[in-house]
């Protein structure tokens, strides 16, 4: 364990960030089970993707910087990457959901037009 010689304020700050981030990620994932339909379930994991991940990354930057004795902020890269990509996944999933819902409704209304195969 290399988390022994850090000052008390950093210990407290990093601990609270970690706890906050993990609780947010847990609530977000619990939203997957608790929310009623697909479109509202998309909002659940966003919690972990934004503030949850942000808190964990800040804690990681803090501890790594202190134990290395200089500013280490490579974690910013993960933040940038996730911020740039997670909206894309969410958009694709919601569009797929909308598209398939429309297809299903169309099939129920006119089943004889199903000439896909």
């Amino acid at each position: 364990m290399s988390v022994e010689n850090i000052p008390a304020w950093a210990d407290l700050l990093a601990s609270s960030l970690l706890v906050l981030g993990s609780v947010l990620a847990l609530i977000g994932s619990a939203g997957l089970l608790r929310l009623p339909d697909l479109f509202s379930r998309i909002h659940g994991p966003t919690l972990g993707n934004t503030l949850g991940l942000g808190c964990v990354l800040l804690a990681s930057i803090l501890i790594a910087s202190i134990s290395a004795g200089r500013l280490v902020f490579q974690e910013i890269l993960i933040t940038l990457f996730v911020v740039a990509t997670s909206p894309l996944t969410a958009m694709l999933i919601i569009r797929a959901g909308m598209y398939r819902e429309r297809v299903d409704r169309g099939k129920k209304a006119t089943p004889q037009q199903d000439t896909m195969h």
Binding site: F39, S40, I42, H43, T46, L47, N49, T50, L51, V83, A84, S86, P87, A90, M91, I94, R95, M98
Partner: peptide
């Protein structure tokens, strides 16, 4: 704007109409 709307929890960008005048979003 799509990135912002989707990154803010509670709203997801769901599509822009073909003429670009109406935006559909899903709100929790």
């Amino acid at each position: 704007l799509a990135c912002i709307i989707t990154a803010v929890p509670g709203t997801v960008w769901a599509g822009l109409s073909a003429d670009g005048r109406a935006l559909t979003i899903h709100v929790l």
